[in-house]
Design a protein around this nucleic acid. Sequence first.
DNA 1: AACTCCCTCAACCGCGATCAG
DNA 2: TCTGATCGCGGTTGAGGGAGT
Length: 278
Amino acid sequence: MGRAPCCDKANVKKGPWSPEEDAKLKAYIEENGTGGNWIALPQKIGLKRCGKSCRLRWLNYLRPNIKHGGFSEEEDQIICSLYISIGSRWSIIAAQLPGRTDNDIKNYWNTRLKKKLLGRRKDPSQSRRSFSLNQELSSHADKPSQTLSSTALERMQLHLQLQGLNNPFSFYNNPALWPKFNPLGSQPVYNPTSEQNEQSLIPSMPSDEPSYPPLSAGTQEDFSCESSSNFNSLNDELQNLIYGNNGIAELEKENVNWFGNEFDSLMLQENHVLGYDM
DNA sequence: AACTCCCTCAACCGCGATCAG
DNA sequence: TCTGATCGCGGTTGAGGGAGT
């Protein structure tokens, strides 16, 4: 038995929204709110739209203070850092960028930022390195135990890419990145002294690399968010997500650990490919 | 000018999570 | 506790427009 449709598909308009529809939806929500029920909302205001479509239109386009396009270099860095840390959790990434929607960031990442970063080939040796890794990994693709998700591969590749010394996004030579990479304020994500951090959110750094400095108030402000309360709630969300003090967070932590494991196995494979483990 | 190709982004779809009765 | 309804998220699609030929 299939899933029940959320609305009557036959009587629902699809495709681009007209200015009249936008005006109706915007006026109603600004006056009455969503009423906590998106499914019933279009009927209330006489729109032949699916409730989900209304919700999306409001969140991604009509909501006040939405920014479109024109991503700054700093926003690029935040998106990139968080993508490597937590993957395609666009809603969480969007929460760190005021005025940006998850859909916007997702589109921006898929169409531009990913190409901008992964397409970068400054150093031929680095290029060969990435290529050989991909080639080697894909040659093992028929072995189930070594099949890796494309997202993880992409993040792995990005991580390698970002290690390039000439790369402005490099974690190692760009201190401005460190606070962005650790959105949790004073609690460092990577703590080389803690055994529990073996599978930390951030891939392990070589032991001779400096650990991330604790955030100053200034850098935390720099990190984003209009109000401190907003920042704190986001902060809490990320704290829960990463450190986990409830059931849901534990689930998230599993995912994070999964990435840690996957990343570790990738690093092992890469070392093997490059002959570092000999 | 006409055609094709490629890119962007708004919107859709399906699914897991959560809520309410 | 169960079940159906709804929400929210991430992946995908396709229309529209710009660039190239």
